[in-house]
Nucleic acid binder design. Structure first.
Lengths: 134, 134
DNA sequence: AATCAAAGTGACGTTAACGTAAACTAATTG
DNA sequence: CAATTAGTTTACGTTAACGTCACTTTGATT
């Protein structure tokens, strides 16, 4: 018998557990990313809710907007085979990979230009008899 | 005798010439980055003003904020030897290089994670007998 | 029942770099 | 001289993802 984790979390507890602020969790709810049940007015988060939050946070880490994450999650559960969901994920992930590779390219170009300016600055200071380190 | 470029620009002309909108130029003035003379109410930009704009635009391309660019430009002209200006520039440029190198690192990590997800998605679709390309 | 901490609910603030729209004024053109 | 064209001014709008307050509500405890 494996013990199932049937623990419930309140907002502050879940926030603590996930390393985010309570405001963030409530904000996500307002954006339709999570929909916890209530006990009176208090939000109750199950392990499934927590799993959803983890997906959201991973999405954020990977640079997706909350809107994109919401679109993805909308298929979650509404798609028995989950094929559509995975296809959509694959599409978005590939878009993001392309975007990041472009960014990487641009970043390298910028770095080169900055290094050139750095060198020019060093040279200029040397000509004035100044130490570029100081 | 070299012909000097003593042409003057109005806001829309300079904007056109630099590939920015008039609003941008006026915005920079409001932020204290440029201070063109006036002919009545109309702004008059000299070649020096244009040079300043080019510096600003380069700074932007390199990822500096308008505030940082403004600080840099404040030394421009107020520093006869220009040594301080160059030192400051060097400091900022190095900071920016460090930041971008960090960014590059993070970006690579993210890319790896995305590629992993891509692969997992492909595998999942294949197991369902679906073509990951479609 | 009074109290008290915890949770919730607006609602406005923040940041950066402009965009947009409306209303003005000044100068030129027919 | 009226109309058009240019340029200016002012102020609010935009975007994303929350932060920060101030205030109210609840459920629980004494």
């Amino acid at each position: 018998m494996t013990k199932i984790d049937d623990r419930f979390y309140t907002v502050p507890e879940l926030a603590e557990n996930l390393g985010v602020t309570p405001r963030t969790i409530r904000f996500y709810e307002q954006k339709g990313l999570v929909a916890p049940q209530r006990a009176g007015t208090t939000r109750i988060y199950t392990r499934q809710d927590r799993a959803r939050m983890l997906i959201i946070l991973r999405g954020k880490r990977l640079g997706f907007t909350l809107k994109e994450i919401a679109d993805y999650l909308d298929l979650y559960g509404a798609d028995p085979t989950q094929a559509e969901q995975i296809k959509m994920l694959l599409t978005r992930v590939r878009e993001r990979i392309d975007a990041l590779e472009d960014q990487r390219q641009a970043l390298d170009v910028t770095l080169d230009e900055l290094r050139e300016i750095e060198q020019q600055s060093i040279d200029a200071l040397k000509e004035k008899g100044l130490d570029p380190v100081a």
